[in-house]
Simulated assay, not measured.
Amino acid sequence: MRRYLVLGGTAEARALAEELHALPDTLVVSSLAGRVRRPRLPVGQVRVGGFGGPAMLAAYLVAERFDAVVDATHPFAERISASAAQAAELAGTPLLVLRRPGWTERAGDTWHWVDDLVGAAALLPELGERVFLTTGRQGLPAFAECPQWFLVRCVDPPEPPLPARHELLLDRGPYTLPGELGLLREHRIDVLVTKDSGGPLTSAKLDAARDLSIPVVVVRRPAAGPAPVLPDVAQVVRALTESADHPGRAAGD
């Protein structure tokens, strides 16, 4: 039996778990960090909570005899991805990274690229006074000292510090273009801040900003590690099944 660990929490991770679960003689275990209160659970076995660092994750990989581990976490889950890379090396377990492609500017877009959230906050005075902030709850302290008004959208309630002037919107995608247009108009948004998360679930806000000529501040993705990076579920499944058919070949080779 082939055994795979999927580090998940994304739509791609759930789709991958479903594809692997359907394969004969295959066991898939999905690991969720536990940061979302009501996560969407994948099929197959699910493990919730951290491992306690790379060494403990490596020990788990060895003890459970996984044939490969797939990092299908969010493109900005830097800590988890770094831990997975270290653990896979310690355990001698093949590692693949599933990353959906980032977003691409289109005609009519006005995007301003920055390296991090601090850079995004520093750019706001040049662009607007009413900000739609969609970077997730964990990065909000970077905007705590900003004088602008913020519409903060995230899945779960954030902890302080928060911007002094803000309205909190708890919501989860997918979002629609009519819905995003209505939101931007209702709150008189004049600048959007987002991470380059990619994917269709939350891209409607970019279409809405384009339609309303609203500038967008986009935080670049962290640099990829040494493991093979594949853009979709089909390619990951193909790599894993090919390595299973050729035991001497590591996944992704």
Rank of each mutant, 00 (worst) to 15 (best):
L184P: 02
A144Y: 03
G179H: 02
Q148F: 03
F150D: 06
G182V: 00
V152M: 13
L140Y: 08
P147M: 02
E167Y: 02
L168Y: 02
F150G: 05
R153M: 13
P161G: 10
Q138H: 13
L140R: 12
P178C: 13
I189D: 06
V152H: 08
G173V: 09
P147Y: 03
I189R: 03
G182E: 07
P161R: 14
P147V: 01
T176E: 14
P161V: 10
Q148R: 06
L162C: 14
G182W: 04
H187F: 15
R153T: 05
E167W: 07
E145P: 00
Q148A: 11
L184H: 04
P178V: 15
P161T: 11
G173E: 08
L170R: 08
E186V: 12
V191R: 00
P160H: 12
T176V: 15
G179E: 07
L177R: 15
D190I: 01
Q148I: 01
P160N: 11
T176S: 15
E159D: 10
Y175N: 13
L181H: 09
P160Q: 15
G179V: 14
H187K: 14
G179N: 09
W149K: 03
E186C: 06
L192F: 06
V191S: 00
P163D: 11
D156L: 05
P157T: 05
L184V: 06
L140N: 08
A164V: 05
